[in-house]
């Protein structure tokens, strides 16, 4: 397991990956925020933003099945979370299920929440598919996030998969030592394993940090790529932001 399965399309040459990471981050965030905050029932606006993301996907030469596959996990969660809307929004019942009824406003709200989620999610997935994490961190740093946060993120990035693999290894070992154990001892095991991982994480982070300091680390995780803004990039980002803004205004007007 590694981060490469996440950003494998970051190295594909395309107009999207040529843009500086800041532009990609700002663009994706604006589309996601614009879509997520559409007023209920603004279907044309949601469709327009969806089309915008689709166009970006084609431009970035990211295969659509891959995008859909990545969206499916979070989307299943959204589906689960929004299913309750079908019955909890009061209104005319359209389908009586005995002790609960699916209401018409419930169906409308369910559908629109789902639409907003799909558009926002696709923008987010497109961003991580086309941007390497160090570049993303660089963008966050340029957007003046607190230094502590970017430092923590950069160290966490180095540790994340190591820890997750360690967690899996420890769990596998614990499970094989305790095959057939009941729920109570599984719970105790999970807690013990988590505690062991936390101790190892701290120890490893201190070692890593010392090694980084020895190699001249001064609080910044350097990226080799030099990003240059060109006129067309500025124009493209401005157009994107403009389109999102116009959609948002039209949806409310």
């Amino acid at each position: 397991m590694s981060f490469h399965h996440l950003d494998q399309f970051a190295t594909v040459p395309s107009p999207v990956t040529a843009m500086p990471p800041v532009a990609r981050l700002v663009g994706a965030t604006s589309v996601a925020v614009g879509a997520a905050t559409l007023p209920l029932g603004a279907w044309p606006a949601a469709a327009a933003l969806g089309a915008l993301v689709a166009a970006m996907t084609l431009l970035a030469r990211v295969p659509v099945p891959l995008l859909l596959r990545r969206m499916s996990g979070p989307l299943a969660f959204v589906l689960l979370a929004s299913a309750g809307l079908l019955v909890f929004v009061p209104g005319d019942p359209v389908l009586d299920l005995g002790w609960v009824a699916v209401t018409r406003p419930g169906v409308e709200r369910f559908g629109f929440v789902l639409a907003r989620a799909v558009v926002a999610l696709s923008a987010a997935v497109l961003l991580v598919t086309t941007t390497e994490f160090p570049d993303l961190l660089d963008a966050l740093r340029r957007l003046r996030l607190p230094r502590v946060v970017t430092t923590a993120l950069s160290l966490a990035y180095r540790l994340l998969y190591l820890l997750m693999e360690e967690l899996e290894r420890l769990l596998r070992a614990a499970r094989s030592r305790n095959a057939g154990a009941g729920a109570a001892s599984r719970r105790r095991l999970a807690a013990g394993v988590a505690a062991a991982v936390l101790q190892r994480a701290f120890a490893r982070a201190e070692r890593t940090h010392r090694a980084m300091l020895a190699r001249g680390y001064q609080g910044e995780l350097a990226t080799l790529t030099e990003w240059r803004w060109r006129a067309w990039m500025v124009a493209a980002l401005a157009t994107l932001l403009g389109l999102v803004l116009v959609t948002a205004v039209l949806a409310r007007g």
């Binding site: 923590a152 160290l155 701290f202």
Partner: peptide
């Protein structure tokens, strides 16, 4: 600094 990174991860 390393402790924060480790805590995040």
């Amino acid at each position: 600094a390393p402790v924060l990174g480790a805590a995040t991860a």
